[in-house]
Design a binder for these strands. Sequence first.
DNA 1: TAGCATATGGAGCGTTGTTCCGTTTGTCAA
DNA 2: TTGACAAACGGAACAACGCTCCATATGCTA
Lengths: 206, 206
Amino acid sequence: MSKQKDGIKASKTESKRPLRADAVRNEDALLQAAKEVFLTSGVNAPVRDIAAKAGVGIGTLYRRFPQRSDLVASVFCREVDACVAEAATLAAENDPLQALTLWLKRYVSFLAAKKGLAAALHSGDPAFETLPAYFRANFQPALATLMASAKESGEIQTDIDPYDLLRAIANLSVTNNEDDIQHTYRILDLLIKGLLFGGSVSTAEV
Amino acid sequence: MSKQKDGIKASKTESKRPLRADAVRNEDALLQAAKEVFLTSGVNAPVRDIAAKAGVGIGTLYRRFPQRSDLVASVFCREVDACVAEAATLAAENDPLQALTLWLKRYVSFLAAKKGLAAALHSGDPAFETLPAYFRANFQPALATLMASAKESGEIQTDIDPYDLLRAIANLSVTNNEDDIQHTYRILDLLIKGLLFGGSVSTAEV
DNA sequence: TAGCATATGGAGCGTTGTTCCGTTTGTCAA
DNA sequence: TTGACAAACGGAACAACGCTCCATATGCTA
């Protein structure tokens, strides 16, 4: 019940000393291992499993991530970053509408991999409180850019808020069945066709 | 990783022998204690705390609720029942529109008390899988009855599905701030006014 | 009242998140 | 290259958890 940790996440301006080489290597290995373990065993997988898979001791894990939830949050942010980064890649290699379409599917698969995590997000753990903001702050501009390009090139015509679209798709993706991702893809196609002519999207969920 | 339990929940037709008096007393004490502990310490409170508050041993708790989640599920169902039962009470003591209004507020306060539980519901634990169905099966008829009465008496005029209304209000209630229940009440008033003239409700959530 | 199935309670087991500290290792000045 | 020290490591150990087990106690029926 004692929780007076600083929690400051090393802002970029801060620079006491550079991390040692083995430290960055291990941090990377931990994040990679955690991502895989979470995927196979769920977010509640024991930290020991993650440390073992990363080939480091538990002490090392806790040095970098003082609490279990910090590790979960870091993995989440990392995957958000990866998904967002792909928007630029896709935009560079495809025409606007195709880039938008491909990225939305990428976004759906991102959501699909976050099944167990969604429950943890609402668990009240303070380590997760900033994640929704991080989610929005990164995804909204990414989608906004893709949509703007497609609109400029005249391929789509809509005034829908990118964030509304992100939320709508997120709601679509909360299907209990695991392989219903194909169903989500089909609905997504409908949404994209909808974008071609403008309009709005409304959703409901319990 | 071993989970081959029967899980059959003693259907009403089954009647080997009546429970012993102390058994029913303890079961009731456990459910009451669990409800209170969950409210103050969250759904993740240790079972030992609950057993202590109920004044029984842990063995007794586990005899009635073989798994922690069974206790959580039972508390949930019990509170659903209580809320549903109140619909009939309110209908008997008030005119239809007032009964409907009062019950919807009661429903909001029910939702407000389920904050931590919402996260557990999506945790994938099989003990929780039947709860959404239980939720709907009990709440929908209750609200449908109240709405039908108010419609017959000409006080409201709408063709909205009771379940849609339940879901919409549930979405409204997922506010992070704890005392935002007043805000929810205000929106609820709007919804009720909306019922007076018919229409539909659409919601969105991340 | 006797007898027995039913119910009880809590020590104890295995697993978890987390701490602690003796040991190892990367880095940098000399 | 080497010495020295802060940084990083690893894992035994601790506390708290969910859950099991069984000797004991107790409510019911005959």
